[in-house]
Simulated scan of single mutants.
Amino acid sequence: MEKNDCRYMAFRTEDMYWAKPLPRDQLTTLLANSTTFGLYRVLPDAPAAKSADSPSSPRSPSPTLGNQPTDELEQIGIARVITDRVTTAYLTDVYILPDYRTYGLGKWLIQCCNEYVTNLPAMRRAFLVTTPGVGKDFYTRELGFWDVREEQERLVCMTRRFFKMD
Rank of each mutant, 00 (worst) to 15 (best):
F163Q: 13
T131A: 04
L22N: 06
R160Y: 09
R59G: 03
I78N: 02
P58V: 11
F145H: 03
S57V: 07
L105C: 11
R154M: 03
R41D: 08
V129M: 15
S60E: 14
M165H: 11
N119Q: 14
E150R: 09
L22H: 08
K164Y: 11
Y139H: 06
D93S: 15
R160A: 11
R161I: 11
A46N: 07
L43N: 11
I82W: 04
K3D: 14
L109S: 03
R24E: 09
K164M: 09
G106I: 01
T28Q: 12
P44T: 06
P98S: 11
Y17A: 14
Q152C: 06
D5E: 11
L120N: 00
F163C: 13
R59P: 03
P121Y: 00
M16H: 05
V94S: 00
P132Q: 05
K20P: 01
V148M: 15
T35D: 01
S54G: 05
P132G: 03
F145L: 13
T13M: 12
D166C: 13
D45C: 09
R41I: 10
T159K: 13
R85E: 09
P23T: 07
N33R: 10
S51F: 08
T87Q: 14
P58T: 06
R149Q: 10
P44G: 01
P69G: 01
G104H: 04
Y17R: 13
T64L: 02
L73A: 06
G133K: 14
E74A: 13
L43R: 11
P61C: 02
R12T: 08
T102G: 12
P69E: 00
F37L: 09
D15R: 14
M9F: 12
D99V: 05
L43C: 12
P63Q: 07
Q152A: 05
T64S: 06
R59W: 06
F163Y: 14
R12W: 00
D45H: 13
I76E: 02
L39R: 00
C157V: 04
K164E: 07
Q111Y: 14
F37H: 05
Y40V: 07
P98M: 13
F162V: 14
L65S: 04
P23V: 07
T83R: 03
K136T: 10
A46D: 06
P21M: 06
A126N: 02
A52T: 14
D45A: 13
D166H: 11
A122V: 02
I82E: 03
R85V: 02
A46K: 08
F11I: 05
D5P: 01
P58R: 11
T36C: 14
S62D: 10
L143H: 03
K107T: 10
T102C: 07
N4M: 09
V148A: 15
Q111A: 15
E151P: 01
E72V: 01
L73E: 00
T131S: 06
E142D: 02
D71H: 15
E72P: 01
Y116C: 08
A32M: 07
L43P: 03
T92Q: 10
E72L: 10
L120R: 00
Q68S: 02
R124A: 09
D5S: 13
F127H: 12
